[in-house]
Write a protein that binds this DNA or RNA. Structure first.
Length: 521
RNA sequence: GGCGGCGUAGCUCAGUUGGUCAGAGCAACCGGUUCAUACCCGGUAGGUCGGCGGUUCGAGUCCGCCCGCCGCUACCA
């Protein structure tokens, strides 16, 4: 059995989970679910990044010990993932004591390699970025360009540096020999351009900070949050009760097949992280995919605009399948996308309720009326437009998932549903019944049932609950959240519904969504 | 300033190597229908394919310039 491992970012616990984190995680979950459907053994890693001065200060502002604050926020992430029906296997927290062991071991490896040195660093420091800033990139009045309301602070302190510069050639060779390492291609170009300009060493420690792991060779210093956070991917790979060690952590699941990230943290993953791993003599992840950002009604989400989308409220109101479907079908992973509540409701209703759900409903009614509630026999008229599409679909969708083109996987599948709704009118099975053409009738209904089944199966990584209801109404004892149907090769193909299988009484599998009535003034 | 990318019907987008390429879905309007979750089916969009110029028998589809939006990055200062 093949293995497939992937990660979401470890989300910073500076604030409650936002829709962007939810988006990444929904995508990762769908990718993981498809791999599982295909029969792979899958490990999905998510988690939280909990160190750094910013966390310390946030906790302080709330009058909480940092760990308490982290516990609370981490719990919120887990709660949201549950509501979104995410099936994760490891939730990696960087304050996990086992993580400290891994970080220490990793640091020492790099240290012994001679890639870490002490250097006096002076400059303006943004606490929010956890980074030193060049004076010239500051906004007038010494504000951070990324955090225009935050004054940068003057620091003059010795820090430990990682010899990133030493790895420039190796990195460039990596990008050359492994063109798929960074995706989409536009991101790859950005990274290559950045590296080509020349790399400078970056600091991996901070002084005057408590909230983090001490530098093993100099406990006055604390390890910089990013150095620590990236390693959380590796710590996560330890078995639950396993004593922590680098060797144990990388034994089974490393290197991961995919780091799914947002485009804002590309450089850390595509440049710093591979260099760190090279230094430590560890294999590199196979692929890094950076997705785009979300806007709300065409505008950037921001506190000052007051247009932040709350994922908790959304999933409470509309349910997880609806959200997952909209974000994964309507937005191309890798490109920026927009969330409009009105459009969201329209699309989801059109595709899932009116399209897919209603197709099942009307077909099932016919099956009960004319075929005694059992799957009819597929006739020679296997030659029909649905069968023609259906025979190609499994492979096409598999390719789309492999390319992480989730929107295409959904679009291809929906095309079958749309064609089926046309075809049912063209064939008018109720007319066939009147004229006593029972064989043709059976063939038509079989094709319709099969189209719904195939669509439900291929969409199950995205809308597992809806797919489950469809499969169950079609007479299968299957729950895509628990017990998958056996055999991708079979279920992804056309024509697997067994003749004679009893189908259930039709019930809507996806209730139409309603826009909240009042428009806020 | 340099380098990516993008700009196609109200909205989201498809459009291989130039010649039914002017499309799909959603929305809207009109009509039909009942097997169906006020659903589905059919029809209607006269969109200068961002603008200008060029290559060509023929260009969203190639070339040049320009405008607008976005990303990465630099520098002047």
């Amino acid at each position: 059995m093949a293995r497939f491992s992937l990660t979401t970012p470890l989300y910073y616990v500076n604030a409650r989970p936002h829709i962007g984190s939810a988006y990444t995680t929904m995508a990762a979950d769908a990718i993981a679910r498809f791999a599982r459907l295909r029969g792979d053994e899958v490990l999905l890693v998510t988690g939280t990044d909990e160190h750094g001065q910013k966390i310390q200060r946030t906790a302080q502002e709330q009058g909480l010990p940092p760990q308490t604050h982290c516990d609370r926020v981490a719990a919120e992430f887990q709660a949201l993932w549950q509501k979104l029906n995410i099936q994760w296997h490891r939730f990696s927290r960087t304050t996990d004591p086992r993580h400290g062991v891994i970080v220490k071991e990793f640091f020492l490896r790099v240290w012994e390699r001679g890639d870490i040195y002490l250097h006096q660093q002076q400059g303006w420091y943004c606490v929010a970025c956890e980074e030193f800033k060049d004076e010239r990139e500051l906004l007038p009045g010494r504000y951070c360009p990324l955090h225009p309301t935050l004054l940068v602070e003057w620091r003059d302190e010795p820090n430990y540096f990682f010899r990133l510069s030493r790895y420039q050639a190796q990195l460039e060779q990596l990008y050359q020999t492994q063109p798929d390492f960074i995706q989409p291609e536009t991101r790859r170009n950005e990274v290559m351009k950045f590296v080509a300009q020349g790399l400078t060493d970056f600091s991996i420690s901070r002084l005057h900070l408590d909230w983090g792991f001490p530098v093993p060779v100099d406990p006055q210093h604390v390890i910089y949050v990013w150095f620590d956070a990236l390693l959380g991917y590796i710590t996560a790979l330890l078995e639950p009760d396993e004593p922590p060690s680098l060797a144990a952590a990388v034994r089974t699941w490393w290197p991961v097949d995919l780091h799914l990230i947002g485009k804002d943290i590309l450089r850390f993953h595509a440049v710093y992280w591979p260099a760190m791993l090279m230094s430590a003599g560890l294999p590199l992840p196979r692929r890094i995919f950076a997705h785009g950002f979300l806007t709300k009604d065409g505008q950037k989400m921001s506190k000052s605009l007051g247009n932040i989308v709350d994922p908790f409220a959304l999933v409470e109101t509309y349910g997880s399948d609806a959200l997952r479907y909209y974000f994964l079908k309507e937005i191309e992973l890798g490109k920026d996308g927009d969330f409009s509540e009105e459009r969201f409701v329209q699309i989801v209703n059109a595709d899932l309720a009116n399209g897919l759900g209603n197709l099942l409903n009307r077909t099932l009614k016919l099956v009960h009326k004319y075929c005694g509630g059992r799957v009819p026999t597929a006739t020679d008229s296997n030659e029909n437009p649905l069968a023609a599409m259906g025979r190609e679909l499994g492979e096409q969708v598999a390719q789309a998932y492999a390319a992480l083109a989730l929107h295409r996987a959904c679009g291809l599948t929906l095309a079958l549903v749309q064609r089926a709704n046309q075809w049912i009118d063209e064939q008018a099975p109720w007319q066939l019944a009147k004229t006593g053409n029972q064989q043709a009738l059976a063939g038509v209904l079989y094709a319709l049932l099969e189209a719904v089944r195939l669509a439900a199966y291929l969409l199950s990584p995205v809308i597992p609950q809806t797919s489950t209801r469809i499969y169950q109404q079609l007479g299968y004892d299957v729950d895509f959240d628990r017990e998958l149907p056996i055999g991708f090769a079979e279920h992804s193909r056309w024509g697997v519904l067994p003749t004679g299988q009893a189908v259930a009484t039709p019930e809507p599998v996806f209730a139409r969504l309603e826009l909240p009535k009042l428009i806020k003034s």
